[in-house]
Design a protein around this nucleic acid. Structure first.
Lengths: 128, 128
DNA sequence: ACCAAAATCAATAATGATTACTATTATTGT
DNA sequence: ACAATAATAGTAATCATTATTGATTTTGGT
């Protein structure tokens, strides 16, 4: 992995962006370095990097994918007002996989916990 | 709400289907009663019924929406082998909203917890 | 019962995100 | 350096969903 200039840059862009960027945000950032890069390249490499475990893919409710350099176990909060994505630590739901496996009899490979609501920034603005 | 034949049938179809049907599955079922029904009608009414709280919309990872007649608080497990959707009771993650609100300072309106893995049916088949 | 206003419909076009395809270019092992 | 392999740019195609439009149905008031 990671032997093309495009792929290396895409990984670096995601890893230096705390804002859980969308495909298009990565594309716009990459175009500053490689102006004629193809959008298909961005899609292909983001998905490859996610499959490879270098980054994580987040599916949000509006039907667009976001990408997260933090591959550790944690959850997300998406503000329905400003669309920003925040991290939520995994200890809000301790032992959730073990409990779900016991109840369902299944083998759980992954899970996603996503909250929607109004973030504290937007709450402040609404009070004014 | 619910004064058109189409809308009533759509609600009935979802309410009598335990399998968390997709838009297309509802469309196919509805066509048996109203052969010339429009797909747009199914989309519009499923979304209206979900907004109204009569049914619940589930966004799955493959980019298609599923609909659930059970509007009570519960979670979902999706088998990556057979794509079936199973229910998981909400007590796998007690107080998760309260904890997440405290940690994030936000106002949480909704949350989704979805597990992916191999269901117990497919596990049985693989052992043979 | 009648009629105007509002809601809903069918049919289809448009949209937006994503994936597939193809010919070309870059990278790798020998 | 050279052949084999992989990745790319550019573009077309796909798929789920939403918007549009003009016709039809339902509703609420008289």
């Amino acid at each position: 992995m990671n032997y093309s200039r495009q792929r290396e840059l895409i990984l670096k862009i995601v890893q230096s962006d705390m804002s859980h960027p969308t495909v298009d945000a990565v594309y716009q950032a990459l175009r500053k370095e490689i102006p004629n890069v193809s959008l298909a390249t961005v899609y292909r490499n983001l998905n490859l990097l996610a499959e490879n475990g270098d980054i994580r893919k987040i599916e949000s409710l509006d039907g667009t994918a976001h990408f997260d350099f933090n591959t550790g176990n944690h959850y997300h909060f998406i503000c329905i007002n400003c669309n920003k994505v925040y991290d939520i630590p995994c200890d809000v739901a301790p032992d959730v996989v073990k409990k779900a496996e016991e109840l369902s009899g299944s083998h759980i490979i992954s899970h996603d916990l996503t909250f929607q609501g109004i973030c504290h920034e937007c709450l402040k603005l609404k009070k004014n």
